[in-house]
Amino acid sequence: MRTIDKRIEVKLAAVLIKRAPTLTLAFDDRCKSRLATTLDNGEEVALVLPRGTVLRDGDVLVADDGALVRVIAAPQEVLVVHAHDVPTLTRAAYHLGNRHTPVEVGAEHLKLEADPVLEDMLKRIGAHVEHATLPFQPETGAYGGGHKHGHDETFVEDYALAQKVFDEHHGHAHAAGHDHGDHSQCGHDHEHEGHEAHEDHDHDAHGHTHAHR
């Protein structure tokens, strides 16, 4: 079995890339640095990449014998989120980011892996959600800590509603405390999948609402 252990960071001639065998992977598998998988030509290979590597559509990898392999993002079940106005789409992006959810950002839409809890939350804050089967390439490196500030009444109402939806699905409502889990861009942080969901907290000091991520 050949081992694929490098990703090429420089641009190669198109003819070389075109001739390379392809490896089609969904997003979750493109997050794995250690993976036994199969090229599209049927050859079994082992991915052994630096930890933290997230492969994207079009990446070119190198096997231990020097051969090239081109990565293709596999179509998968996703949610495509639209809104009737920019503030609603922005709020949708905020609530997804506050839960460390991998999101692909388009000019007028958001895309995320299909999840019924998130779908319910998005619909309740006024977003339009469609199911589709498409390649998924979320933003990278954008799921760390920090604060978001809401200064209008509508934002506060949406924020409270979003938390209420999660409390209904997870059967808990914590008044205080933080749970600092994995802030990785890969995978889900929902309790129904074995991970603790990050709680949101409203603070009214100085007339601002601070959402801790």
Rank of each mutant, 00 (worst) to 15 (best):
T3K: 09
T3Q: 09
I8R: 07
I17G: 07
I17A: 15
R19D: 15
R19T: 13
P21Y: 03
P21V: 11
F27D: 08
R30I: 04
L35R: 03
T37N: 09
T37C: 14
E43P: 01
E43D: 10
E43G: 04
L47D: 00
P50A: 11
V54I: 15
R56P: 12
R56S: 15
D57Y: 02
D59G: 13
A63D: 12
A63L: 08
D64R: 08
V69R: 01
I72V: 14
A73N: 09
A74D: 07
V78L: 07
V80S: 04
A83H: 02
A83R: 05
H84N: 14
D85W: 01
V86T: 10
P87C: 10
P87E: 13
T88A: 12
T88H: 04
T88P: 01
T90P: 00
A92C: 05
L96G: 05
R99I: 03
E104I: 13
G106V: 08
H109I: 00
L110T: 03
E113Q: 11
E113F: 01
D115I: 15
P116L: 05
V117Y: 01
M121Y: 00
M121C: 09
R124A: 15
I125H: 02
V129Q: 13
E130W: 02
H131G: 12
T133I: 12
T133S: 11
L134R: 09
P135D: 08
E139L: 14
G141W: 01
A142D: 11
K148R: 02
E157M: 15
D158P: 00
A160V: 14
L161K: 04
A162W: 01
Q163V: 14
D167G: 03
G177T: 08
G177W: 03
D179H: 13
G187M: 08
G187D: 10
H190S: 14
H192F: 06
H195D: 06
H195K: 12
A197T: 11
A197I: 07
A197Y: 00
E199T: 12
H201F: 04
H201V: 14
H203C: 10
D204A: 15
A205R: 10
T209N: 11
